[in-house]
Amino acid sequence: MSSAIFWKTARDSRAILICGLLGILVFETIWVIAISNLAPQLIQLWKGLEFMHGWFQALLSIDLGGGEISLNSFMGIGLVHPFLLIVSWGALITHCTRVTVGEVDRGTADLLLSLPVTRGAAYVSTTLVWVAAAALFCLAALLGLWIGGQIATIEDPATGDVATVASGIRFRRLWLVATNLYVLLLAVGGTAMMVSCFSNRRPVAVGVILAILLLSFLINFLEALIPEIMQYFTFLGFLSYYRPVEIIRAGHLPWGHLAVLAAAGLITWSIGLWHFARKDIPA
């Protein structure tokens, strides 16, 4: 670990991280406010359009399970909405391709790696930044939901009482979802680091990572539409191991999913480290 590289990396990435954090925070806040206004109608609509469940599932990249949908389920959707994933994944990809392949591509690797610092230390230092950033993304999402919950109000149809949305949200379950989201981001980051180490051109690395993530979306999309075929391939997609609505309904962590994501992240990250420590740095 090199504190100089850690702080330099953090400083290099701060603009995109701050924009990402603010974007997620504002989005989640607006999400809660919007949902609080529309939730009763949406729940009614959901009940009446059973044939549309598969399409919703495909479009939102979540498995709603075809059962009852509640306010808390909508909060869960906010934690798997494509906006959140695109912003957080985009920031991770930008960061994870900055220090390894980015340094090689722009020619600054000579300066960095000729310092008396091991490549492993440089790799770990930059990893710590995105590991921390991923945690902040999850916290920003939760904070956004909480702020939105404090602002938005909802009327109880039975009594007519008006209360803040926050009073109806089970935040403990949202923490569980955020934990799953965090491990998902670690898996994405680990994969991005590995791809970044195997390439010497940043655009190529970014392209490969995007292709992997788009494939993950595609698997999830097709799973909802043609489950009988896709059941053999769903294990390949990151999103197959991130099911917020299921967590909210079940009220406990999906340890199997967490284990798969953590293992994927750790293995890909370790392969990246192994290769980075040995690779020739081209001029």
Partner: peptide, 21 residues
Amino acid sequence: QGVAARSGVGYLPGDLRFYDT
């Protein structure tokens, strides 16, 4: 022993690039 070897070295690359920002 790369770290020990490089600890007493100053290096100017032929194709010098810095962090522009």
